[in-house]
Deep mutational scan, measured.
Amino acid sequence: KFNKELSVAGREIVTLPNLNDPQKKAFIFSLWDDPSQSANLLAEAKKLNDAQAPK
């Protein structure tokens, strides 16, 4: 279960257009550290992506 959630969340995070590479890497490392938090980490990444969207 975690492997699928981890890969789905990881793929989504790397495609978020408004995150820079260090931010993406930080989220990916957090996913590896605790795969059970993949849904929460993906939600946080999406929030940050939205907040950094060009206005």
Rank of each mutant, 00 (worst) to 15 (best):
A26R: 11
N18S: 02
A9L: 11
I28K: 00
L31W: 03
S7R: 11
R11V: 08
N40I: 11
P54Y: 04
P22Y: 14
W32G: 04
K55Y: 05
K24V: 04
L41M: 04
Q23A: 02
P35M: 04
S7H: 12
N3R: 05
K46T: 05
L16G: 02
D50T: 07
V8Q: 12
I13P: 01
A43N: 08
L31D: 06
L48C: 07
T15A: 13
K47V: 07
L19H: 01
F29I: 14
P54V: 10
A45H: 00
A43V: 08
V14H: 07
E44K: 08
Q23I: 05
Q52M: 08
G10F: 15
K4C: 15
P22C: 15
P35C: 05
F2Q: 11
T15D: 12
K4D: 13
Q37T: 06
N3H: 12
F27Q: 00
V8I: 13
P35W: 04
Q37S: 06
E5P: 08
L41Q: 02
K4F: 08
A26L: 09
L19W: 01
A26V: 05
N49Y: 01
Q23M: 04
S38N: 07
L42V: 12
S30Y: 09
L42G: 01
D21N: 07
A53V: 07
D34I: 00
K24G: 00
K24R: 06
N20E: 06
W32Y: 12
N20W: 06
F2W: 12
N18W: 14
K1H: 12
K46Y: 06
E44V: 06
P17Y: 00
N18Y: 14
N49K: 01
L48M: 08
L6Y: 03
G10N: 06
L19N: 01
L31R: 00
Q37V: 04
F29P: 12
S7K: 09
F2M: 13
A51W: 07
A43T: 09
V14S: 12
K24A: 00
P17H: 06
P17F: 00
D21K: 08
E12T: 09
F29M: 14
D50I: 08
S38V: 15
A39P: 05
N40F: 10
T15F: 11
K1M: 14
A53M: 08
D21S: 07
S30R: 15
D21V: 08
S38M: 15
A39F: 07
S7W: 15
A53R: 09
L6K: 03
A43Y: 08
Q52F: 05
A9V: 15
Q23L: 03
S36Q: 06
K55W: 03
L31G: 02
F27M: 01
G10I: 15
K47Y: 06
L42Y: 02
K55M: 10
V14T: 08
Q23F: 02
L48I: 06
P22M: 15
P17L: 05
K24F: 02
K47H: 08
N20I: 06
Q52H: 04
D33A: 12
N18C: 09
D21M: 10
L6V: 12
S38E: 12
N18E: 02
K25V: 11
E5S: 10
Q37H: 05
L6F: 06
K47Q: 09
Q23P: 01
V14A: 11
D34V: 02
L31Y: 02
L31T: 04
K46W: 03
A43Q: 10
V8Y: 10
D21C: 15
K1Y: 13
D50R: 07
A53D: 08
A43E: 10
N40R: 12
K55S: 11
S7C: 15
N18H: 13
V14F: 09
E5G: 09
I13K: 00
A43S: 08
Q37A: 11
A51H: 08
N18R: 01
D34M: 03
L41T: 06
S30D: 13
A39S: 10
F29R: 14
K55R: 12
I13F: 02
K25Q: 14
S36I: 05
A45N: 01
D34F: 03
R11P: 02
K47S: 12
I28M: 07
I13M: 03
P54L: 08
A45C: 04
D34H: 04
D33N: 09
I28C: 14
K24S: 00
N49G: 01
K47D: 06
N3G: 14
S30F: 11
K46A: 04
N18K: 01
S30A: 14
E12Q: 11
N40G: 09
A26Y: 11
A45G: 02
A53I: 06
S38W: 15
P35A: 04
A39R: 05
L41P: 02
A9T: 11
A39Q: 09
K4N: 14
D50W: 05
K25R: 10
L19M: 01
K55V: 12
W32I: 09
V14N: 11
L31E: 07
W32S: 05
A39W: 05
A43P: 00
E5K: 06
L6Q: 06
L41A: 03
P35T: 03
D34Q: 06
W32P: 02
D34E: 06
T15Q: 13
K47G: 04
Q23K: 02
P17Q: 07
D33I: 10
K55Q: 11
L6I: 10
A53F: 05
F29E: 15
K25G: 08
Q23Y: 02
P22F: 15
W32C: 15
K55L: 11
K47M: 10
E12I: 14
L41V: 12
F29G: 14
I28A: 01
N18D: 01
A9W: 06
A26W: 13
L6M: 10
N20A: 09
A9S: 06
D34G: 00
S38H: 13
F27K: 00
S38P: 02
P17S: 05
K1L: 11
K55H: 11
D33P: 00
A51R: 10
G10M: 15
D34Y: 03
A53K: 09
